[in-house]
């Protein structure tokens, strides 16, 4: 058992990190190359200024009109996305492991705070799932894969939360936590989670079309 744990907390972390980052990089290069060969016009319209203008506008909470029309969903989603990155990156237990492997450390979240934030993320995901049932236009678009994605993100948070509290089956909970976290990382380049990479790209293009050609705002 210990050697299995050593594997999933050692080499497997490397493997998933490489698949995650390498996959995104590979995907990015693929997109750029295919734009070059099939749709070079994209570069004719893309401008740094208008791309950043649009991305920036959409990063300011409740600035785009669309976000004000669905404030609850948007607000929750905004917070969810921030915590999604903040919690794993600033969790004391993660930093300790990182420190022991690479002798690099940075300030950590207070454990109690991180605990509540994780609960908030889980609550947000539950909200997403319920919203998919309740809001007719969202329900119409929803298919099994959408729940699967929600579940995939929820799993590391749920198991992490339970493991931290050591309520039951601690060892298994940590194993499940580590594996589901790695699974999520691995899935990012190969699922719609890759919107992490494509969101800035599609936004940049639309922002450039609007700013550069249409002389209009796109938020």
């Amino acid at each position: 058992m210990n050697s299995f744990i050593a594997f999933i907390m050692g080499p497997m972390v490397w493997i998933s990190a490489i698949i995650f980052l390498g996959g995104l990089l590979f995907k990015f290069i693929g997109i750029i190359q295919s734009v070059r060969s099939k749709e070079p016009y994209v570069f004719s319209y893309l401008t740094v200024k208008h791309s950043l203008r649009s991305i920036g506008a959409w990063l300011i909470p409740f600035f785009p009109k669309s976000t004000r029309l669905s404030p609850v969903y948007y607000g929750i989603s905004y917070v969810f996305h921030i915590f999604l990155f903040v919690i794993p990156l600033f969790l004391a237990s993660h930093i300790v492991l990182f420190n022991e492997a690479f002798q690099i450390s940075w300030p950590a979240l207070n454990d109690g705070v991180a605990d509540w934030l994780s609960l908030a993320v889980i609550a947000a995901l539950v909200f997403f799932a319920i919203r998919r049932q309740m809001v007719p236009e969202v329900k119409y678009l929803t298919s099994g894969s959408d729940y699967l994605l929600i579940f995939l993100v929820a799993l590391p948070f749920i198991t992490g939360y339970l493991a931290y509290h050591q309520w039951f089956a601690y060892r298994w909970m940590v194993v499940a936590h580590v594996l589901s976290g790695e699974l999520m990382l691995i899935m990012i380049p190969f699922s719609r989670f890759s919107h992490m990479l494509t969101a800035p790209l599609t936004r940049a293009y639309m922002g450039s079309e609007f700013g550069n050609v249409r002389h209009a705002r796109d938020w």
Binding site: A163, Y170, R171
Partner: peptide, 9 residues
């Protein structure tokens, strides 16, 4: 190959 290895153990 034995003994606790995880934080909460």
């Amino acid at each position: 190959g034995q003994g606790p290895v995880l934080c909460g153990e």
